[in-house]
Computed example of a mutant assay.
Amino acid sequence: MKAHRLVTPATILRWHRRLLARHWAYPHRRGRPPIDPIVARLVEQMARDNPCW
């Protein structure tokens, strides 16, 4: 029966590992994304307007 297999269990496992590796591949970003300058100015103005904030 072993001689009649078209695909071995090891092959199926290898295909599955490759599929998962491709699906979960994403770019590795470092650090926090930059803040929009408009938002930064708004936060600075709010901090000036509310010194106890």
Rank of each mutant, 00 (worst) to 15 (best):
P51Q: 01
A47Y: 04
H28G: 05
R30L: 06
L13Y: 05
P33I: 14
I35T: 10
R5L: 14
I12Y: 05
W53Y: 11
R41E: 12
P27L: 07
K2T: 09
W24A: 06
T11H: 11
P9T: 14
I38A: 12
A10T: 06
L19C: 06
A10F: 13
T8Q: 11
E44A: 11
I12N: 02
A21N: 07
P27N: 10
R18Q: 12
R18E: 12
R30Y: 05
D36L: 06
R22C: 08
M1F: 15
Q45V: 07
M46I: 06
W24L: 14
P34V: 01
W15A: 03
L20Q: 10
R14P: 01
R41I: 02
R41K: 10
W15G: 01
A40I: 00
I38N: 07
I12A: 04
C52L: 09
A10I: 05
P34F: 00
R14S: 06
M46Y: 06
R17V: 08
A25I: 04
R22F: 13
I35Q: 08
P51M: 00
P51K: 00
A40M: 01
D49G: 05
R41T: 03
P34T: 02
H4Q: 13
P9E: 15
P33G: 15
K2C: 06
P37N: 02
M46K: 10
H16D: 03
H4L: 14
W24Q: 09
R14M: 06
R18T: 04
V43Y: 13
A3Y: 07
I38R: 10
C52V: 05
A25Q: 10
L19Y: 12
V39T: 08
A10S: 09
T8E: 13
R18W: 12
R18F: 09
I35H: 02
R17T: 05
W24H: 14
P27V: 06
P34Q: 07
L6W: 15
R48T: 07
V39E: 11
P34K: 03
A47W: 03
R5C: 08
G31R: 01
H4P: 00
L20S: 05
Q45S: 05
H4M: 13
A25L: 10
A25C: 07
M1S: 15
T11G: 04
V7I: 15
R17G: 07
G31I: 00
W53M: 05
P27K: 08
V43I: 14
D49I: 02
E44V: 01
A3K: 11
H28N: 11
R32L: 03
R32S: 02
R17E: 14
L13F: 10
P9L: 14
P37H: 01
H28V: 14
H28S: 12
T11Y: 13
Y26D: 10
L42W: 09
I35M: 15
D36V: 01
Y26C: 06
P34G: 04
N50I: 01
A25M: 08
P9R: 15
R48F: 12
